[in-house]
């Protein structure tokens, strides 16, 4: 990981961004460790919440930041991952079969592939239709699909409908004890690093070059004999899978899933986090998630009107800090 960060050191600005990235990682890792040493488990869980939300945004950033696809429906994938984890935990706790046919497992290593595969299939379907449209239409059609899945989740009476589903026992991972907050943090952190590494590798590859070209100049890509549609579709599916992975972890962190994981507000929040951190910057989602979750948490401690101040801060960032927080910290306004 560190290698891949430092290997980006081409220009002075880039190196500064790498240092900011490194700093973010240091902070993220050191807080839960210090907190564990001081027996303050709350901060461990808060850090886990931050990195899972960051990971959801890493997923969106891949489609949005690198592929220029403004998906207003990524909460659907986030919720989908969550529901796979929740339903698996539910059936294995009750000792019942999924749809009366398939035995469930509480092993994360089995749950995650199902979540990823499920998200991939749905994203393929949604992407195949949505990517025929562009601009605002794309924003809105992804929203429409997400709303459809949202209402579907409300109608799942077996799994609690609008009340959602409690995960009474957190699913298990092969190594360590997933119920130990620090172990679970480590697991999520590793997942985040994986998703960052995947994004980084894919963006740096020939595929990434084609994706960027599809965003900047579609005609040139087409003349090179590459179909922008399929490039975008692959990127959209990968992006959805990363977000779904984060959703599965989020469900296990919270101990429940419910339709609000799929609401359009959640889609909006994931966009907010990407933009807050800096669109198309590898570590943007992490900076964005830290800022968003801390604002949400600490503003609420000061005032009942915390959403008013959250709105003002967000507005300030859009209007005056173009390039997001990473841009602000590196003094580099726009990237990519």
């Amino acid at each position: 990981m560190i290698n891949s960060i430092t290997s980006l050191n081409f220009t002075k600005n880039m190196s500064r961004e790498s240092w900011v990235n490194l700093l973010l990682l240091v902070v993220i890792v050191s807080v839960p460790i210090i907190a564990t040493l001081m027996d303050e488990v709350y901060y461990v869980n808060l850090s886990t919440r931050i990195i899972i939300i960051a990971m959801a945004a890493v997923g969106l950033n891949f489609a949005l930041g690198f592929g220029g696809m403004v998906s207003f429906g990524h909460a659907a994938f986030f919720g989908l991952g969550g529901y796979v984890a929740g339903i698996a935990a539910f059936h294995s706790f009750e000792g019942t079969l999924f749809l009366g046919l398939i035995p469930a497992s509480d092993q994360m290593l089995l749950i995650w592939p199902v979540a990823l595969l499920g998200a991939a299939m749905i994203a393929l379907l949604i992407g195949a239709i949505s990517l025929r449209t562009q601009g605002v239409y794309f924003i809105m059609i992804t929203l429409a699909f997400a709303q459809m899945i949202y209402y579907f989740s409300i109608s799942l009476t077996t799994y609690g409908g609008e009340d959602g589903l409690s995960i009474i026992l957190r699913n298990n991972f092969a190594i360590g004890n997933s119920n130990n907050p620090l172990h679970f943090f480590a697991l999520c952190f590793f997942a985040l690093l994986m998703s960052l590494w995947l994004s980084h590798r894919m963006v740096g590859s020939r595929f990434g070059a084609a994706l960027t070209m599809a965003k900047l100049n579609e005609t040139r890509l087409a003349t090179a004999g590459i179909e922008p549609y399929s490039i975008r579709l692959v990127a959209f599916v990968v992006s959805a899978m990363i977000t779904a992975f984060a959703g599965a972890l989020f469900a296990d962190l919270n101990g429940f899933v419910d339709p609000s994981m799929l609401s359009w507000h959640r889609s909006g929040e994931i966009i907010v986090i990407v933009v807050l951190g800096g669109v198309g910057r590898l570590f943007g989602p992490i900076a964005g998630a830290i800022a968003f979750v801390l604002l949400e948490t600490f503003l609420g401690g000061f005032t009942d009107r915390w959403q008013l101040f959250l709105g003002l801060v967000l507005l300030g960032v859009v209007l005056f800090a173009r390039g997001g927080l990473i841009g602000l910290m590196t003094g580099n306004a726009r990237h990519g």
Binding site: G268, V279, V318, L319
Partner: peptide, 28 residues
């Protein structure tokens, strides 16, 4: 105060800024 600064921006910034406006106007 806000919107006229967004005409030249891309849709993403517009979505974000007006999302923030929802929070502000609701609480206001």
């Amino acid at each position: 105060l806000v919107i006229r600064r967004l005409y030249q921006r891309d849709h993403l910034d517009q979505v974000l800024a007006t999302f923030a406006l929802i929070l502000i106007l609701s609480e206001g």
